[in-house]
Amino acid sequence: MTLAGVRADAPGPATAGVRGDAPGTALTGARADLPGGVRADARIVARADGRGGTALPVLDGSGPLAPRRTRGSGGEARVMVVGAMSGPLGGDRFTLHARVEEDARLHLGSSAATLALPGQAPGEARYDVRLDVADGAELRWLPEQLISATGSDLRVTTLAELAAGARLVLREEQVLGRAGETPGLLTSRLTLRVAGRTVLDQELSCGPGAPGGWDGPAALAGHRAVGQLLVVRPEFAERPPGARMLGECAALMPLPGPAALVTALAPDALRLRRVLDEARELLG
């Protein structure tokens, strides 16, 4: 995996809305920044089509967050979020909302890593992800890494709201800086609710400006990649997977609900992905 050149802005038709990027030439992320930053909203609704497949009645978004349908498999629809410009930058506000209705199946990924960069607009950037999954439905949210570049200040929230009979596989990977780079400030909160009950609520803050000790022996201890794999299955309520270590710096932990969490630390993005892929295989 090449971390340099991630988020090479997508060439092609000018999908950029608010900011008027130059598509195809924006490898350096040239953007005419507006005061207050950019707003980008993506909305995806997946609905069972009644023939064993999944339709996508809503697939909205542009600029930095453009969802595209790609080839799915079986009854699962597959959507890639294509970043058509760089970001999020300081002051930007991105939101992504995916809703998977009863018995539908959606695989949601991203075409490239997301690179948090400093911006000219004041204040932090925000990226809010909201995932709703109904009974009998399944969502696999498997985006590429989030890379925190020097000077960036990004706050990410992910809220997954599941019905009692919903299934979810969610992966989050945070990489502290490109190769050899000092990271920016990154705060990420992950919340899982199942049938209205909060099963997981966790925030990680790291990088210069984060509360003290973030890189010390209680938190990251020099690791530059941290990730989580969250798996929710109704059957875990009766038969949760047992807690176990996955190597020296990753653990599989059954949560107080029909869910299991793998938290992993690694020296870099590649090795983190390897651990999380193994965990995904282990959980089947």
């Binding site: 919340t191 990680l204 209680a218 941290v226 807690a243 710096c249």
Partner: peptide, 18 residues
């Protein structure tokens, strides 16, 4: 209670399992 902080140290959790 959703307003309560949720700060976490990854190694505290991982190493507690070890």
């Amino acid at each position: 209670v959703a307003a309560l902080p949720a700060a976490s140290g990854p190694l505290l959790e991982i190493m507690a399992e070890a």
